[in-house]
């Protein structure tokens, strides 16, 4: 008998008393009761708590803000689906900033990604109650590797994509898309339980909330 058949028959034998399947009581909160402004404020508070940098800016000013944040950077990477106009503030600059575009036709190597200063992506949805930003690999967020290897992640988040509780985010997401849920920069508490931000993931997380 194959291992699969063996294990399956062991399971069925173990369940020969046919235990009942209970109904699932979903009496927890499934939707928000906060206004958009309250959700935004809550998310900002949570992200600051996690030692991320947060900026709330009107959408029209996003390119300028991005240019300001990247004033000292020499190179960045962006996913191929990131709308060009976000980068307009950077392009205006004398052209000293190198912008690498990662696309299915032109995938950047690990070492190329390791040598850029930052990555700029959007996000699919954010959960204000837990301070979580979720990336789902769509074209303006890119392959998982590009938001992982560079040491700084700048994330553009539309305020309309902020929900309050996790079930609202789950309802919006496609399960089979490769997802990364990010709640602050990487951290460890493994040494005497003292929290240290920045281990293997990007050590700096900047979130631009666009209103």
């Amino acid at each position: 008998m194959s291992a699969r058949d063996d294990v399956m028959s062991r399971i069925k034998s173990a369940l020969r008393d046919a235990p009942p399947t209970p109904d699932i009581p979903r009496n927890y909160r499934l939707a928000t009761n906060k206004t958009a402004a309250q959700r935004c404020e809550q998310l900002v508070g949570r992200l600051l708590d996690y030692k991320a940098n947060v900026y709330v800016v009107p959408t029209t000013q996003a390119p300028a803000k991005l240019a300001q944040l990247l004033a000292d950077a020499e190179s960045i990477v962006v996913p191929h689906g990131l709308e060009e106009h976000w980068l307009s503030g950077l392009r205006d600059d004398a052209g000293s900033l190198r912008i690498e575009v990662d696309s299915p036709e032109h995938r950047l190597s690990v070492s190329a990604l390791d040598s850029v200063d930052a990555v700029v992506t959007t996000a699919a949805v954010a959960v204000s109650e837990t301070g979580t930003i979720i990336l789902d690999g769509s074209s303006s967020q890119g392959r998982r590797i590009i938001s992982l290897v560079p040491d700084r992640h700048i994330c553009l988040l539309a305020a309309k994509d902020i929900v309050e509780v996790l079930p609202e985010a789950i309802a919006r997401l496609n399960a089979t898309a490769p997802q990364t849920w990010i709640s602050g920069p990487s951290a460890t508490s493994d040494i005497e339980l003292e929290r240290v931000e920045g281990v293997h993931g990007p050590r700096t997380l900047d979130v631009l909330i666009l209103t």
């Binding site: 590797i145 490769p178 849920w181 990010i182």
Partner: peptide, 27 residues
Amino acid sequence: QLLPRSSTGERMNPYTSLWTGVTPGDG
């Protein structure tokens, strides 16, 4: 919601990864 709060006492752990089989070109 149950796991991070019960485990490290955080509202959410810094990173969670989800994958379904192979994603062509990614990972």
